[in-house]
């Protein structure tokens, strides 16, 4: 662990605009400090649901969104496995580890993707997601910087949650650029529209986002604003508000 680098991270965090959310600051500092194109923080809930805590730019947002849609990708692997994920050449990746993820990530402009587990000892939170718009492995310094940054993010997230009442997210973890719960609201709506279980509604949303080349968050936004809905009689997704549900 390089103390100079640790102090550098804290210096960058201290210099950052106090107006942005802490999670956005962490992502911006992560991207700048590791000299990569973008960064995101992915947390795993108890149900092993990947949730984005924040991202530094639109592409890192779309990359995390893509992992939520597909259920595969670097953060998923890094969160569940032991090791960091280092795919410096996504295009020529021979591992075939993410058949669906890889071509879409490339089309989003991510030529290299990296993910570092967020953990302290056996305690695991999720992963720090990083990408670069150019191919190439991480240098040794970048790699150790990423590990260091991931450890700072882990502690920072836990420090923010410390002191929040039980079963409540800390206020610092909410707000602009933090958790986006629209997807879960949309899943609730689709569950009622299609009279299905919430898990199935989430799957339906994910598959719809995939098949319509949409991001999960934009599809969810359209469901919540009632510009699209799921029609159970035809099994189709239709524009507009749909029929009024009886009963309540």
């Amino acid at each position: 662990m390089s103390i100079d680098r640790l102090i550098e991270i804290f210096g960058r965090l201290a210099d950052h605009d106090s107006g942005e959310s802490p999670s956005r600051t962490l992502c911006n500092v992560a991207a700048g400090f590791t000299e990569l194109s973008g960064a995101g923080i992915a947390l795993y809930s108890q149900e092993h649901q990947l949730t984005s805590l924040g991202t530094s730019n639109p592409t890192s947002h779309e990359l995390l969104d893509l992992e939520m849609v597909l259920g595969e990708g670097p953060c998923t692997d890094a969160s569940l496995g032991e090791d960091a994920v280092d795919e410096g050449h996504l295009e020529s990746s021979t591992s075939m580890r993410w058949l669906a993820y890889t071509p879409i990530a490339l089309s989003l402009g991510a030529c290299a993707v990296f993910a570092f587990p967020l953990r302290i000892g056996a305690v695991r939170l999720g992963a720090l997601s990083l990408y670069r718009d150019q191919r190439g492995e991480l240098t040794e310094l970048q790699s150790s910087d990423c590990y260091l940054m991931a450890s700072v993010v882990t502690r920072a997230v836990l420090a923010m949650q410390a002191g929040a009442p039980p079963d409540t997210l800390a206020a610092q973890l909410e707000g602009e650029g933090s958790f986006d719960f629209t997807t879960h609201q949309a899943a609730g709506m689709v569950a009622v529209q299609g009279t299905m279980l919430i898990g199935d509604a989430m799957l339906a949303l994910r598959s719809r986002a995939f098949s319509s080349n949409s991001t999960l968050s934009s599809l969810a936004g359209r469901v919540v604003s009632r510009s699209v809905h799921f029609d159970p009689s035809s099994g189709e997704w239709l524009e507009g508000q749909g029929r009024r549900q009886g009963g309540l």
Binding site: Q49, Q161, P166, D167, T168, L169, F181, M189
Partner: peptide, 20 residues
């Protein structure tokens, strides 16, 4: 954190269901 995140997800899902 994990529990809080989970409760919050359930609340948001319920909000969606009620809204619909």
């Amino acid at each position: 954190l994990s529990k809080a995140l989970n409760s919050r997800i359930i609340i948001e899902q319920a909000k969606g269901m009620i809204s619909q």
